[in-house]
């Protein structure tokens, strides 16, 4: 990472905006017990208190603080999204790397599996997985990771394949370098930048999937989350719109910020490919 990378990356106002919001969310998530001491599941006041009326964002149908829910929900949402993405990147990356490096029959088999997983409607499959594993934080992570890895595998495979045919890799082969050394010390470091970009964008998709699952009541029980708040507030849309609107805006801004940062990362890592 050279200094010109940081200049390109941080000099981009969209990246800066995204980073500021993400920093707020992360700080909120880390400092949740300090800045929102009320238990998000505890009845803290009258139900349906309007925002700014004693509670910053009001209360829900049971009198729970929306602000507490929001801050504690950030923890759940971020943690699940990040862990699921890491798992998907690790698994998809390994599969893609092996597929692209060895080619031939290995590639054929692994890519068939990838295509197969892309044929299954991903969200329905995620619902099924959570239901089968019975709803818990772990099963949500597993479900999201299971439906997210195929695109990663494809991108890594393509990248490894193109690097594999580059002459410096062939030179390593002719010097007698072992396969795993070539794969891990020569190819993967050079394939890192698309992996980082895709990975960061995948966090955004994972947040959307997690919140949709929680919305349907298939999230991690006993963890407050943004999707769950929307799902719970849904029935009171007519009278207490803020129960739906506020967590939704939180999701939107967070996903938007991650996308902006991810794209900024892409532009900064591949300055020539920047779209005008």
């Amino acid at each position: 990472m050279t200094s010109s990378f940081w200049i390109r990356f941080l000099g981009n106002p969209r990246v800066l905006l995204g980073l500021i919001w993400l920093a707020l969310v992360v700080i909120g998530a880390l400092a949740a017990p300090l800045i929102a001491p009320l238990d998000p599941f505890a009845i803290s006041g009258k139900p349906f208190v309007r925002p700014m009326d004693g509670f910053l964002f009001g209360t829900d149908s049971l009198g729970r603080s929306v602000w507490s829910g929001l801050v504690h929900g950030a923890r759940t949402t971020l943690l699940i999204a990040i862990i699921a993405t890491l798992a998907a990147v690790a698994f998809g990356g390994l599969l893609g790397a092996l597929s692209g490096f060895y080619g031939g029959r290995t590639d054929n088999l692994l890519m068939r599996i990838t295509e197969f997983f892309q044929t299954i409607p991903s969200f329905i499959f995620a619902i099924l997985l959570v239901a089968v594993l019975s709803p818990s934080a772990t099963s949500v992570v597993v479900a999201i990771a299971t439906v997210s890895w195929p695109p990663i595998a494809r991108i890594v495979r393509a990248e490894v394949m193109s690097l594999r045919s580059r002459e410096f890799i062939q030179a390593a082969v002719t010097l007698g370098e072992r396969d795993f050394v070539i794969l891990f010390r020569q190819i993967l470091p050079n394939a890192l930048s698309p992996l980082i970009v895709t990975g960061s964008l995948l966090v955004a998709t994972a947040i959307l999937t997690e919140s949709a699952l929680s919305f349907l009541g298939l999230g991690a029980p006993n963890f407050m989350s943004w999707g769950f708040m929307i799902g719970a507030g849904r029935s009171f849309l007519r009278d207490a719109w803020w129960l739906v609107a506020i967590p939704g805006i939180a999701i939107l801004l967070t996903v938007l910020s991650i996308n902006l940062v991810g794209e900024g990362l892409n532009d900064a890592l591949n300055p020539r490919l920047r779209t005008p």
Partner: peptide, 11 residues
């Protein structure tokens, strides 16, 4: 071997 493309042949 000495390769063709000097820009692709060095890591």
């Amino acid at each position: 071997m000495v390769f063709q493309d000097p820009f692709a042949s060095l890591n």
